[in-house]
């Protein structure tokens, strides 16, 4: 198995705004994410967690320092390169962000078809398989409006995973869910993630997730101030 890190960050700084309003959001971040690891990122709001996540997710341009993702340097990468890199990632958001006009199956297919060239029947098959894995085999043809909050977030999980991403990025995926649904989603992420050797980085306050993480990174005022390695404890 390839043991090169999925993400290597060195001396990463990031600013928002221009001129006098310019404000530094991240200070000298150094970080490695090993293949197959499950890392939780915690910290008070405004600490820079989301900024870090969007930088790793190729949703912002790297301004200073080095960020290597899947072997490619993102500092200086073009917009088109960032778009191409994003296709190798999976995203789960705080809100499910499902398309209301598409059925559960079609929403998941959008994740499978992003590469183009994926044949329709294969994409359908993959979508149905993933919905089966998240326990929604019977809801393939349901529109999001007819699904519960937990079900919708599980569809979003299936959509993020259907493309077999190398790295899954999640931002408070359980924040909008009740206790049972949240527990289901965490189980799913952990189970499918380890089965596929997927690397996971998620921002969370949810202790149910923290309990099951390999590593917990704490961010405060744009700096990594704590790192707890819990490998083997989960």
């Amino acid at each position: 198995m390839d043991t090169a890190p999925i993400v290597t960050i060195r001396a990463l700084n990031h600013w928002f705004g221009d001129g006098a309003a310019r404000k530094q959001a991240l200070f000298d971040i150094n970080l490695r994410l090993e293949p197959g690891s499950f890392t939780a990122l915690v910290g008070p709001s405004g600490s820079g967690k989301t900024t870090l996540l969007t930088l790793i997710g190729c949703l912002r341009m790297v301004q200073d320092g080095s960020l290597r993702l899947l072997g490619q340097e993102l500092h200086g990468a073009s917009g088109a390169q960032l778009v191409a890199m994003r296709r190798r990632l999976g995203f789960i958001f705080q809100a499910h962000n499902l398309h209301e006009s598409l059925t559960a199956g079609q929403n998941v297919m959008m994740g499978a078809q992003v590469d183009g060239g994926v044949r329709h029947d294969r994409a359908t098959l993959a979508a149905h398989h993933l919905l089966g894995l998240v326990g929604l085999a019977g809801r393939v043809d349901y529109l999001p409006a007819n699904l519960s909050g937990g079900q919708k977030q599980r569809v979003a999980v299936a959509r993020a995973l259907v493309g077999n991403p190398d790295l899954l990025l999640a931002d408070e995926p359980t924040a909008a869910l009740d206790r049972n649904s949240a527990s289901d989603v965490v189980d799913l992420l952990r189970r499918i993630g380890s089965a596929r050797g997927m690397t996971t980085l998620l921002v969370t306050h949810d202790t149910r997730i923290l309990d099951r993480a390999d590593r917990i990174l704490t961010l405060e005022d744009g700096r990594i101030v704590g790192e707890e390695d819990r490998q083997g404890k989960g």
């Binding site: 990632l89 995203f91 959008m110």
Partner: peptide, 12 residues
Amino acid sequence: REYATFKAMGYG
């Protein structure tokens, strides 16, 4: 919001 999601997923 949906389009932004698709953009994040890598649609051009």
